[in-house]
Structure formats: C-alpha cells, structure tokens
C-alpha cells in the first residue's frame, strides 16, 4: 500500500508560475502513472488506447525504423496526425526537430495536445532549442541530468523525460539518465543554501528553478522515462527510480504481440511495487523487440542522447 507519509514529495502549485504554464504542467500531472505509446497508424493508436495508453505519440516511423533507415527524420505528416486525432479520445502528441519552431507552430495549429522537441528526429538547430513559453501548446523535452532538465524548463518545457536511447530496446541509458537526474536532486537537497548558488552555476541552470527543485524534492514538472523501455519490468524499474510514468516507443509495435504487451506495460506502470503483478503481466507476451545493445563497444548505432544539451 502506498504510504500516506506527510513528508512525501508534494505537488503544490508554485504561484510564481503563470496561469498559462500551470495549464501546461497540469495536463502532464494528469498523465502521471501512465504510459505514452508511439504509434504510426490510426489502427495502432486504437490498439494503444484500448490497452490503456494515457496518450499516443503520432509518428511516421518508430525510432527503431528511424535508426534502420537513416536519413533525415522530420515532423510527422499533418494528414496522419489528423487521422490519429480522429481515431482516439486520449491526448495526441507529436515530435518536432530540436530548434525547429516552425514545425512546432504547425503542430500547434493542428491542435496537437503536447509537442515533443525530440532528439530522436534529426536536429534542425545545433545550438538553440525552441523558446517554448510563447506557445499555448505544452512541450516535453529530453534530459540526461538535472542541469539539462532545468535548462529545458527555463525555455518553457512543461514536462521532462529522460533521453535514453530510443529505438534500441536497451533500457541502460534511460536508467543512467534517471539515476543521474534523481541523484542530482538528492545531492541538491543535502546542500546548504549558500552551496546551491555554486551548484546552479556548475550545472548551468537558473538558480530560481534550482531552489524550487530543492524545495519540492523533484523537478517542478512531471518527469517520465523514455528510451529503450521494452518490457513490463523495464517500466516498473523506471517507476522505482522515481519516474512519474513511461514513454514506450518501438518496444510495443516491434514486438510479437503489441496489444498484449501494451496492456502488460500499462499494468506494470501502475502496479510497479508488486513483483507478483509484474510477473503476471509479463507471462506469455511473445517476442520482445530484438533490440540493439547500447554497450560502449558497439559503435554501430547513432547516439540520439548526445543531440542537444
């Protein structure tokens, strides 16, 4: 049973944030404990929704295929986004290239519910991310550590995810990023106030957001795991590491039985504390995606996580 510990992290709204930003972070708060699934057709979107996805990410290719095909990966065709919006009632997200604010304007025009400024697509700008506060549509961005997360939030991201290595089926990088992020926050909480100023400088993050994170004990926005999650146990592992929910990309529709695996990952993300529930959800799922080993010695794959900082 979840504890009712009065010292557990709170989600009290910070009054210093604007109403517009609170609406953006509010939607992400409602997504907590859920699974967001990559889909490339309206039919896949229906399968995801039936399995209990809290949202779908409308893509032309899942990350595993982006890796296989190579070339430049861009925003999804608006016609496909519309068809997926018509097919499901849950929020529909879509990706833009890092720094490509015109792709973001197009997605906002299409009434997408959340925009992922994503390293999985080919970056449009090697230096600058999108100034996200100017949009009414909320953004989610990737991070590898606390500094990167707070820089994205300063730019206007209303939700954060780990970068991981999408399309590999290897959870090691998502684990690394989540541990680094949560470890940074625990270190920050142990610091004296005067030490926090230096820490903010060392991680290149605004002191106001560093102070807010220290007070909350977590990022000021909802934080999901992403990149390489392929099994119910992977999802539960990320929840144990302090993530609020999970993105699953290629892991579902590159597996033997997508509908069953999707529902199993949904169950494990809710029942992450219960090994029995995860065992039950994991039984007889058929083949997982084959995957790519992310070991350092494997030089044959593109490291998405290094895109953007």
């Amino acid at each position: 049973m979840a504890s009712a510990d009065k010292s557990s992290p709170t989600w009290t709204v910070n009054d210093s944030h604007s109403d517009a930003f609170r609406l953006k972070t509010g939607l992400a708060q409602n997504l907590k404990g859920g699974v967001i699934m990559d889909v490339v057709t309206p039919e896949q979107a229906r399968i995801a929704e039936d399995a209990g996805a809290i949202a779908v990410m409308a893509l032309e290719r899942v990350p595993a295929d982006i890796r296989r095909d190579g070339g430049v990966a861009r925003m999804t065709d608006p016609e496909l986004i519309r068809k997926i919006q018509e097919a499901v009632s849950v929020p529909v997200m879509a990706k833009v290239r890092i720094g490509h604010f015109v792709e973001a304007q197009v997605l906002e025009h299409l009434n997408v519910d959340y925009i992922d400024e994503s390293e999985v697509l080919t970056p449009a700008d090697p230096t600058y991310h999108i100034a996200k506060h100017g949009f009414k549509t909320p953004f989610v961005c990737g991070c590898r550590d606390l500094g990167e997360a707070l820089r994205r939030i300063a730019e206007g991201a209303a939700m954060i995810r780990t970068k991981g290595e999408a399309g590999t089926g290897d959870v090691v990088n998502a684990v690394t990023h989540a541990r680094r992020l949560m470890g940074d926050i625990r270190s920050l909480q142990a610091m004296r106030e005067d030490e926090r100023f230096h820490f903010a400088k060392s991680i290149a993050a605004p002191i106001s957001l560093v102070a807010e994170t220290a007070a909350l004990g977590h990022l000021p926005v909802t934080t999901f795991a992403a990149g390489g999650i392929a099994t119910p146990a992977d999802a539960a592992l990320m929840m144990h590491l302090g993530m609020d929910g999970v993105f699953v990309g290629s892991g579902i529709f590159k597996s033997g039985n997508p509908a069953k695996r999707a529902q199993a990952i949904v169950q494990a993300t809710t029942g992450w504390r219960d090994p029995g529930a995860i065992a039950k959800a994991s039984a007889g799922l058929g083949e997982a995606m084959v995957g790519i080993n992310c070991d350092e010695s494997n030089a044959s794959y593109t490291r998405f996580a290094a895109r953007g900082d």
Partner: peptide
C-alpha cells in the same frame, strides 16, 4: 491511485483538519 493526479489530492486532503489518514490504493 492507479493513474493521474492522485498525489495532489492526497496532499490537499492531508491539509484538511478533519482528515486523520489518507490511503492511496491501487487494487
């Protein structure tokens, strides 16, 4: 507490004088 904004509700309820205990349940 299966999905959604349950932590926020627990936090608000704990601030209510009449509440002694908040129990988040998932099954």
């Amino acid at each position: 507490a299966i999905q959604g904004g349950f932590i926020e509700h627990s936090h608000a309820l704990r601030q209510c004088d009449a509440v002694e205990r908040v129990v988040e349940f998932t099954n």
